[in-house]
Every structure is written in structure tokens, then in C-alpha cells.
């Protein structure tokens, strides 16, 4: 089984993200592997363990995104590839999907390509479906459980109403969600291996594609008005009295 996990690097959740001179900044908060993409790596490793094979982590990003790939290697991925090119500005999702599809083809022979559900920066949760469309492979989105038998993959998809169980022939594109299982922590051995790993950097030229035009562009950044909340603690002699007061307060807010 040859499995590719697509990962992106994003500012940590705890970062104070701000707009400054029309740019997004997050001070000195660390950049991390997109938390959802850890599930992509975890799911890929689970399938490798069940079926044998290799896991390749793939990322489009600047040089600094190596660190996210090293995290995937430390978790247990066998190889990593960074796609980096000065010509890649702000990619829209279709643009990212075109570059990923080209890289997946260059890696070659993939049976499954795992994605995260969404990137936490300005992500839209659409790149997996767009990559699948470009490759012409089945899209199995929001998967919480995977079973591969022969060349058939059966998955359970988490939808609003519960779960939809579907199957398809490999190769396929999957996006994975939390039910796949907690992402494993990098092991000591893994971290050592990752620190020594050679990570090839591919340019657009290497992929044989031009820089995709951005059809969707950002016109403006807006800082939402800060929410100054002061919490009014409702107290009373008994639960019934507290509940009565609280219900009145809620009703007075006219939110029901």
C-alpha cells in the first residue's frame, strides 16, 4: 500500500492572530502541523500497519514548513516531500489542488491519499475534493473508519445526520476526522530519525506545472469587534431559586 498524507503548516490554535497593514500576523506564536492533518497522518500510519507499505507526507509551503513534515516523519511516516516555489504566492484552493495533484502523480503509484478535514488558517475544507476531481479518483470525505480488502476500500463518513457507509475501488482520496483515533505522539526514535531525514524540495518546474492563477483573492482583512464579556454570576438559596432567576435573565435577552 502506498499512502500519501497531505499536510499543511499553520499557526498554533493558541496564537493571537491579528491583521496588521493588510497582512495576517501571529507574533512569535509557533507554526505547527495543521491539527486536522495529524489525523491524516495517523490514519495513513494505521493503514500502513494493517496492510504494509509506506507513508509519504506531502506539503506545499515555504522552507519553514519542513518542521511540519518532520512532525509527520517523527510520528512514523517513511518519507516527506516539500513543494516550494517562489512563484507560489497565495494559492486558492483549486490552485493548491492542482499542485497537490501534480505532486501526487510525480510521487506515483499511490493507493490512498489522506487529507485533513480543513486547514485552520484560511482553509475551506475543499482541497481534498478538488484534488480527487482533478485526479479522477473517488472522494471519500470526512472518514472516521477505514477498511481495505483487496482493492476495495470501505469507509464510514461522518455527516450531519450520522454516518454514511460507502465503498470504492482504490486508488482513492480520503479526508479523515477525529473518530479515526488520536494522533500518536512522535516517539524518541521517530524524532531522531526525522531530524536526520533528507526532505526533497520540488519546484513547479520539477512538477511540470505552471503557477496556478488565483481565481479567489482576498480583498480585505477585518478584525472582528472584540467581545468584552462580563459574566454575571447567578446565585441563590436553592437550585430552584437560581434556575428561576437564570431563566428570567435568559428570557429577558429575547434569544428564545
Amino acid at each position: 500500500m502506498k499512502i500519501i498524507a497531505c499536510i499543511k503548516q499553520v499557526p498554533d490554535s493558541e496564537a493571537k492572530v491579528k491583521a496588521e497593514n493588510g497582512q495576517v500576523t501571529w507574533g512569535d506564536a509557533p507554526l505547527v502541523i495543521n491539527p486536522f492533518d495529524e489525523y491524516a497522518v495517523e490514519g495513513a500510519l494505521q493503514q500502513k500497519e494493517a496492510l504494509g507499505g509506506t507513508v509519504t507526507a506531502l506539503c506545499i509551503g515555504p522552507e519553514s514548513a519542513r518542521e511540519a513534515l518532520k512532525h509527520a516523519l517523527a510520528m512514523g511516516a517513511d518519507e516527506a516531500v516539500l513543494v516550494s516555489d517562489a512563484a507560489l504566492g497565495a494559492l486558492d484552493t483549486v490552485g493548491a489542488a492542482r499542485v497537490l495533484a501534480a505532486a501526487i502523480n510525480k510521487i506515483g503509484g499511490a493507493d490512498m491519499v489522506m487529507f485533513g478535514r480543513q486547514t485552520l488558517d484560511d482553509g475551506s475544507g475543499v482541497t481534498a475534493a478538488q484534488t480527487a476531481r482533478l485526479l479522477g479518483w473517488p472522494m471519500l470525505g470526512l472518514v472516521g473508519h477505514i477498511k481495505v480488502e483487496d482493492r476495495n476500500v470501505q469507509v464510514s463518513r461522518v455527516i450531519e445526520e450520522g454516518r454514511q457507509n460507502v465503498s470504492a475501488k482504490l486508488p482513492a482520496v480520503l479526508s479523515l476526522v477525529q473518530s479515526i483515533g488520536e494522533p500518536r505522539y512522535p516517539s524518541f526514535m521517530g524524532i531522531r530519525k526525522a531530524s536526520k531525514a533528507e526532505i526533497p524540495v520540488w519546484s513547479l518546474n520539477d512538477l511540470g506545472v505552471g503557477a496556478p492563477a488565483s481565481i479567489v483573492t482576498r480583498a480585505e482583512l477585518i478584525t472582528p469587534p472584540s467581545r468584552e464579556v462580563t459574566c454575571e454570576i447567578i446565585a441563590g438559596e436553592s437550585p430552584a431559586e437560581i434556575a428561576d432567576k437564570l431563566a428570567d435573565k435568559i428570557l429577558a435577552e429575547k434569544v428564545l
Partner: peptide, 9 residues
């Protein structure tokens, strides 16, 4: 960015 910012696109 998880609702920390909004963009016009």
C-alpha cells in the same frame, strides 16, 4: 483563523 479574523474575498 477560527473566527479570529474575517476576510472579504
Amino acid at each position: 483563523y477560527e473566527g479570529k479574523l474575517y476576510e472579504k474575498a
